[in-house]
């Protein structure tokens, strides 16, 4: 849900009237860096799903599959974040606006489009964990 909020509200706000809107976004993030949030909760999420995978490992092969799939999907999100989003964050928030208006416009549109993919990966990871828990409770009762 955080990711969907980022697309619908944050990224649309940054890109709504470039160059003025990106300057407003830079001013807004001047004192608190939003990466602080993701740098804490991203690793916690990855660690929790890894622990779930390890602790449910012996229960059944299908549980391994579903928790493993969640782990893989979240790992893909981390990879996408470093390989795709961070380079565009650099363009959006550090490049000179006057000299790179077109690149900033392009980066903003690409960021929004790809963030729908990132949200879909996260949703698939959550659903896969739901399925894992469902199988676990069916096995137990």
């Amino acid at each position: 849900m955080v990711s969907i909020y980022n697309t619908l509200i944050d990224a649309n706000s940054w890109g709504s009237d470039i160059p003025a809107s990106i300057q407003t976004a830079r001013d807004y993030y001047k004192y608190v860096d939003p990466r602080n949030f993701f740098a804490i909760f991203g690793p916690i999420n990855q660690l929790l799903i890894l622990l779930a995978l390890i602790f449910f490992w012996k229960d059944s092969v299908s549980l391994r599959f579903y928790f493993g799939l969640s782990f893989l999907l979240y790992a893909i999100i981390v990879f996408l974040t470093f390989a795709y989003f961070i380079p565009r964050d650099q363009i959006l928030f550090t490049w000179s606006i006057q000299d790179h208006t077109e690149q900033i416009r392009a980066a903003s549109a690409q960021w929004i489009a790809m963030n729908w993919i990132r949200s879909a990966l996260g949703l698939a990871g959550v659903l896969s964990s739901f399925k894992g828990l469902d199988i676990y409770y069916k096995l137990k009762h």
Binding site: N45, F55, V126, Y136
Partner: peptide, 30 residues
């Protein structure tokens, strides 16, 4: 008897721990 009770307690704690990890991952990811 006591050994069975302790065994059940350990199983319950282990079960809670497992679902805490799984549900925790769902809550944080969602």
């Amino acid at each position: 008897m006591e050994a069975i009770a302790i065994n059940q307690l350990i199983r319950s704690v282990f079960h809670l721990l497992k679902i805490t990890f799984a549900i925790g991952a769902i809550v944080v990811a969602a």
